[in-house]
Simulated assay, not measured.
Amino acid sequence: MNDYQETLYDGYGQRFRMDTLLHEVRTGHQHLVIFENARMGRVMALDGVIQTTEADEFIYHEMLAHVPIIAHGNAQRVLIIGGGDGGILREVRRHHTVESITLVGIDRTVVDICKEFLPNHSCGAFDDPRLNLLIDDGMNFVTHTTETFDVIISDFTDPVGAGEGLLSENFYQACRRCLSDGGILVTQNGTPFMQLNDVQTTASRMDGLFCDWHFYTAAVPTYIGGSMTFAWGSTDGSYRKQSLDVLRQRFAGSGIVTRYYNPEIHIGAFALPQYVLQAVNKPSND
C-alpha cells in the first residue's frame, strides 16, 4: 500500500493512502493517476495535484453548474471549458431549459479514462444529444469561436501545465466576447487562503470587463486550504441579486434533486471573508 503525496504547495500538503492503483498514464499533456482510497473512493490526480474524488465531487460540480444557471433563469446555450471528468456536464444536462452544451477539453485521454474509471462523474452525460464535445485548447476555442453562450463554466485545472493559459487577461476578454447579452461566466479559482494571488489576478482581469463581478465559495474537503473560490462575471448586475423567493421558485421548477446546492446556500455563498474582500477591494455590502 502506497501513499499519494500532493505537490501543489511547497511546505504544506496532503496525502492520500493509495489502496489500489487503478490507472496511470502520461498523456500528451499531463501525468494522470486514478486510484482507490477507502474514505474518498476513486481519486484522480493530474501532474501531482488532486483533481476530484468520488466522495465530495458533488459539492464542486453542483456549485459551478447550478449557481449560474439558476441565477440566469433561461440559460439555453452553455459552454464548459475543461471538465473532462464529466461532472459539470452531468449537472448542466439536468436543466431542461438548456438546449445545447458545448464541452471543450484539451485532452481526449482524460475524457476516455474518466468515462471508464470514474463513470459516476458523468453518469452517461457524454451520450446526451445536446452535447457537442470538442477536443481543443479552451483558450483557442473562446478566441476563435463565432458562437455565443448564455453561461460559460470554466472548470480548468490549477494554473500550471495544461491550465496555465486560463488565468490570462486574454482568456477573460475572449470569454466576455462570446457571452450572450445578459450572459454569466463562472470559473474555478482555487482556495483563497493558499491562492489569494490568483483571486486578486482574476479580480483585476474581470474589473472593467463585466458590469458585475464577484466571487462565491464552497467548502470542498478534497481541495486543501479551506473554502474553494469561484469567480463570477456577468453583463447583468441583477443576476447576482436574485431574491430567495425567485431562486426557490426556479429551483423547484427545475425538478432537480441535489446533495449540496439549495437557494439558501446560493445566496450565502456570495458572502466572503473580510480578508478576501480586502484583497479584491470589494465592500462587504456589495
Rank of each mutant, 00 (worst) to 15 (best):
Y4H: 10
Q5D: 10
T7K: 13
Y9R: 07
D10R: 10
L22H: 07
V25L: 14
R26Q: 14
T27R: 01
G28E: 09
H31D: 15
H31F: 15
V33S: 11
E36D: 10
V43A: 02
A45V: 05
I50A: 15
I50R: 01
T52M: 12
E54L: 07
E54M: 08
E54F: 08
I59C: 01
Y60T: 03
A65G: 02
I69Y: 05
A71Y: 09
H72L: 02
R77T: 12
V78A: 03
I80H: 00
I81A: 02
D85Y: 01
I88K: 00
R90Q: 07
E91I: 03
R93Q: 07
R94I: 00
R94L: 10
T97I: 08
V98I: 05
S100H: 11
I101M: 02
T102P: 01
L103R: 02
G105H: 11
I106T: 01
D107F: 06
V110M: 04
I113H: 06
I113N: 05
E116F: 09
F117H: 13
F117L: 10
F117T: 07
L118W: 08
N120H: 11
N120P: 03
S122T: 09
C123L: 11
G124D: 10
A125E: 08
F126K: 08
R130E: 06
N132F: 07
I135Y: 09
I135K: 10
D136S: 13
M139K: 08
N140M: 14
V142I: 12
T143N: 11
H144R: 15
T145V: 12
T146H: 12
T146S: 14
T148C: 07
V151N: 05
F156L: 14
T157C: 14
P159R: 06
G161S: 12
A162Y: 01
G165Q: 11
N170T: 13
N170V: 06
F171Y: 12
Y172F: 14
A174Q: 06
C178L: 10
L179V: 03
S180L: 04
D181T: 04
G182H: 03
G183A: 06
I184D: 00
Q188C: 02
Q188K: 00
N189G: 05
F193K: 10
F193H: 11
M194P: 05
Q195T: 10
Q195H: 09
Q195Y: 04
L196F: 04
N197Y: 00
V199R: 00
Q200G: 06
Q200S: 13
T201F: 11
T202N: 05
S204Y: 05
S204M: 11
R205C: 14
R205N: 15
G208F: 03
L209M: 09
L209G: 08
L209S: 07
C211K: 15
C211V: 15
W213D: 06
H214R: 13
F215T: 05
Y216S: 01
T217A: 12
T217S: 14
T222E: 09
G226Q: 10
M228K: 07
M228W: 13
T229G: 09
T229V: 12
D236W: 04
G237M: 10
G237R: 14
S238E: 15
S238P: 06
Y239N: 14
S243Q: 12
S243E: 12
L244G: 03
V246P: 04
Q249V: 07
F251R: 04
F251K: 05
G253S: 13
G253P: 05
G255K: 04
R259N: 13
Y261F: 15
A269M: 02
Y275I: 14
L277F: 02
Q278V: 00
V280M: 02
N281D: 15
